[in-house]
Design a protein around this nucleic acid. Sequence first.
DNA 1: CATGAATGAGATTTCATTCAT
DNA 2: AATGAATGAAATCTCATTCAT
Lengths: 210, 210, 210, 210
Amino acid sequence: MSTKRAETTLDRPTQILDAAMICFAERGFHQASMHDISAEAGISVGLIYRYFKNKDEVISAMAAEHKKHIAELLERAGQAPTLLESLEILFTSNCCESSPQVLSAFVVDLFAEASRNPTVAKIVRDVVRTTTKGVTDLIARSPEIKYAAHKLGPEAIADMIFAVNDGLMMRSVLQRSGVSSAKQRERQLDVARTLWRLLFTRTSHANGHN
Amino acid sequence: MSTKRAETTLDRPTQILDAAMICFAERGFHQASMHDISAEAGISVGLIYRYFKNKDEVISAMAAEHKKHIAELLERAGQAPTLLESLEILFTSNCCESSPQVLSAFVVDLFAEASRNPTVAKIVRDVVRTTTKGVTDLIARSPEIKYAAHKLGPEAIADMIFAVNDGLMMRSVLQRSGVSSAKQRERQLDVARTLWRLLFTRTSHANGHN
Amino acid sequence: MSTKRAETTLDRPTQILDAAMICFAERGFHQASMHDISAEAGISVGLIYRYFKNKDEVISAMAAEHKKHIAELLERAGQAPTLLESLEILFTSNCCESSPQVLSAFVVDLFAEASRNPTVAKIVRDVVRTTTKGVTDLIARSPEIKYAAHKLGPEAIADMIFAVNDGLMMRSVLQRSGVSSAKQRERQLDVARTLWRLLFTRTSHANGHN
Amino acid sequence: MSTKRAETTLDRPTQILDAAMICFAERGFHQASMHDISAEAGISVGLIYRYFKNKDEVISAMAAEHKKHIAELLERAGQAPTLLESLEILFTSNCCESSPQVLSAFVVDLFAEASRNPTVAKIVRDVVRTTTKGVTDLIARSPEIKYAAHKLGPEAIADMIFAVNDGLMMRSVLQRSGVSSAKQRERQLDVARTLWRLLFTRTSHANGHN
DNA sequence: CATGAATGAGATTTCATTCAT
DNA sequence: AATGAATGAAATCTCATTCAT
């Protein structure tokens, strides 16, 4: 009974996308087969096609899911009291949900897919635009920016923060399973945090000049 | 023998890898077929197998080629008179060789592949290690670092520079063909250069001079 | 119960077979899916299986329906005052019921199916036998035959009439939607009527009167 | 060696189409699988795709083959000394090449397919147009027509002859394997020949009148 | 009686790889 | 060295049929 409850709680599309996430992260969009996904989800292949027209639509739905996920994150980040706390929320949550590598492998694949699949490209571009806008606003509204040791505009700062973050994510797929991934993750976050500090720390003098 | 022209100048493996680069960038490692590659190279499928054991080996060879390419770049960068010039060489050359998006699509795919293919992962990790080491040394040796407005060690700086660069590369695959890619590329370089300025600008005392 | 309107008037099997007729004529027996039929009938797939054991039985039922339909036609034709009027009834009704091409596409498919499906073949053979017998009788009883310009027996005549008719039906599936189908249908009927005239026109002695 | 010779004589496309003919006649276009065809041809499934883009193209090629075949027949029929001999060539050859039912099952299926597949429809319409034209010319040029007991034009006569023939072909798919097919075929030819006699026999009187 | 989610076998199609020439 | 015909496994997708509700 409780098992049935659990099954009913998760609607099929979600169940399928959850399975797809695992398969896609593990083997890539085009090496994970529909059979792999169905097996991972514990259902038959045909059933996937009741909810998704074809594999491309599963991939697009995954991209859309990613977009939704990022939007939620942005929402939560916007409610943090300080800018640095917002950034922490935005950029550290990745590793908690599923295993850290899973997500980065998926995202890197998503960008690779975007370079060839117009539907996915559109969604990913939308994610990029929305998050950049969100963080730009966050920065513009934050007091930290006013006393920064540089004259960069909020958007330039946001661009840089995202570039560093995406770069770190891209490299995180290289992590060897042997090495403690928590440790490597920490090392990566250090790079991001260092940048933030660099960008938002006031210099004693700059204060008066700006 | 002497009847054959330019074709003979290019040895077969190179000819094949050049074709593979185009196909892989265009369609991705696992959607480009061996037939695509042979057609692009203007040879028969079978001939590829005389020089490469199988498709995976072509992919690995591409990764190795990338490594070699990056090593040459690093070499050239090391000979520049100033640190900023070194960085320019290192990070702006991408766009010149082939079309700009081609290379970034390939590199993003390479990282995606590395997350699943141990052989490729090993090579890419090696590239990362070598280049980081190279740039770290470059920074350590440079006078600019001594008067920087921060206390970051050379390796932390190198990490950050690469993170930004990889992140920009990842995003560059999203470029719409409609929009001037030269312009967008310039905009991306601006982000990178801004970071360099930020990292290598003298302390507040020197600040007034700029 | 009384809340249901017209739908109840039509019993389920008929409703299903009506839908099947449309689907089969449109896409063919083996390209129309059970889902297509259920959708056309406005019911669920499962419900079809309450009334028909499987798809083959739906096909057989369609054949049987066709047989019944032809039998009725033959009955009506038998009541016409003259032989020519009987033939008109028999061979011109096709076009009136549904769209003209629909029926011919269905019948051609039915014969194609009969060549492989014994159950359908049995029914179609039965239709052929019955109608040939019917028309043979009609001819034998008619006064027109006595003074015909030839010495063909009633059955030979019936065979010929049916051959022409089936041949015209077979060709009618080729009609381009662009061209007026009414016009083309008329042109086809002309061929049939010409044959009838040829078969039932009096000998040369009477020839001068026409 | 002689086996190899035999294989080389038959080029692959022909070999595949020969196999397809058997499969299509036996099971119909859409129930014969590509695997069936490959098995019948004694080759692998994949090889079919080297010569035909997809199944539809195999079907279209079969239609084209049919067209070519009919054209040859028409050519041969045109060289016969008398009209009746021409008709004999045109309409009796069907049964000789392969088994009689095979061809008629194929042709009926071809028409059924034509009612839904535009490419096939185009080819079949072309066959119909060409053959009608050919036989119309044959009739117009023949002396038999001049003294016929009727006033039908050559095209009306050709239409009628083809209608009867197609109708007979359609019905021939119903033949039971138990019954001697040669006998039934003979019976069908009788109907056709009776029509020809009817159309081309001069009446003693008509001679003077026309 | 009625639904439609679910299954799984099977169809079409692609593609890495081999091998005779 | 070079070709490209040939293979066959595997991938995507469809569909007749069942069954719990």
